[in-house]
């Protein structure tokens, strides 16, 4: 096994440069115009070793597509993803395989991500087999215990596990090859509150114990607050705000972020008048600032000119002509 290459400290672990991705939808009529849905629109991000970043937004905002681009599952139409200074799109097959070991993914639905006929031990041995690495029963039992599962489950099958235990197994499989980055798409949203708390604690412990960098895709701001040091808010494919999690949630700069934060129901706070309407159709998004049609503080400029993501204050960025201060 080659020793892991440690990049010089100046290069971030993961960098995304103006990523865009759209999907062809087909035509409305036979001779009609071909329609495209822009899922991710000019998004740039950077993540250092051991950092944790949450991608936040409502359904259809492009957060899962962005996660897939960062993983290299899909190729961006424009822009590039650099992992440890290497462009994902330019990797040869062998290099790409080595990269797979260093970047892993945890999905939301732990029920459908296992082969039901394969024992838990064999499930966890699979990553080692695929990557041609040596493994032992002891190593797999240690892995089970690292995620809080009993080593005695080795011979059992995934059906014997509860939802929370299955999510632990999912995480164990992602950790098998000691990755440097884990992308988790809604890892706890299918779980009950008491089980959710256990998995959130596990993910945080692993971040600090293993120095693991992580990207969490989530719509639950309370979970994001507990789990990620930085957060990026997406609306219709674009980043509208990015910054340190606690500061962003306590004092959002973008009106959309504020609306999201205020819409979280919590004790001791009155229900605030919510945003009007639904998220517009991503096939024909509004011009200017994409949020202006629902924005409570929009002015004429917002309908004409699209704001850029600009740095404001300490380590915070916002794409708004009239940020909240």
């Amino acid at each position: 096994m080659p020793p892991p290459v440690t990049p010089p400290p100046t290069i971030p672990l993961l960098q995304a440069h103006s990523l865009s991705k759209s999907f062809a939808l087909g035509r409305r009529r036979v001779w009609g115009e071909k329609r495209f849905l822009t899922a991710v629109d000019d998004v740039s991000l950077s993540l250092g070793a051991g950092d944790s970043l949450a991608l936040v937004g409502e359904s259809g905002c492009g957060k899962s597509t962005l996660g897939r681009l960062l993983m290299g599952f899909d190729a961006p139409d424009r822009g590039r993803v650099m992992f440890e200074g290497q462009d994902l799109a330019r990797l040869r097959a062998g290099e790409k395989r080595r990269l797979r070991a260093r970047v892993q993914m945890v999905f939301q639905d732990s029920g459908s991500s296992f082969n039901p006929r394969r024992s838990i031990g064999a499930t966890l041995a699979e990553p080692y087999r695929i990557h041609g690495r040596a493994w032992s029963r002891a190593a797999i039992e240690a892995l089970l215990e690292q995620v809080g599962l009993s080593a005695s489950l080795y011979e059992r099958h995934p059906v014997a596990l509860s939802g929370g235990q299955r999510q632990r197994l999912n995480i164990a499989r992602a950790l098998a090859l000691s990755p440097r980055l884990v992308v988790a798409d809604e890892p706890v949203s299918a779980l009950d509150v008491s089980v959710q708390a256990q998995i959130v604690n596990l993910l945080r412990r692993l971040q600090s114990e293993l120095g693991l960098a992580s990207v969490f895709i989530s719509h639950d701001l309370a979970v994001v607050r507990q789990i990620a040091d930085r957060m990026a808010v997406m609306y219709l494919g674009s980043l509208v705000e990015e910054g340190e999690t606690l500061a962003t949630l306590a004092r959002p700069l973008h009106p959309y972020t504020r609306a999201l934060v205020e819409a979280v129901p919590r004790p001791g706070r009155a229900l605030v008048a919510p945003l009007e309407g639904d998220v517009p159709d991503a096939v024909s998004p509004p011009g200017g600032c994409r949020f202006h049609t629902r924005c409570p503080v929009a002015r004429p400029l917002c309908a004409q000119e699209r704001p850029k993501l600009e740095t404001m204050g300490q380590e915070r960025k916002v794409a708004c002509h009239f940020p909240l201060v």
Partner: peptide, 9 residues
């Protein structure tokens, strides 16, 4: 989504 949830509530 949360913003729509608030409307329904």
């Amino acid at each position: 989504d949360v913003t729509v949830q608030a409307q329904i509530l």
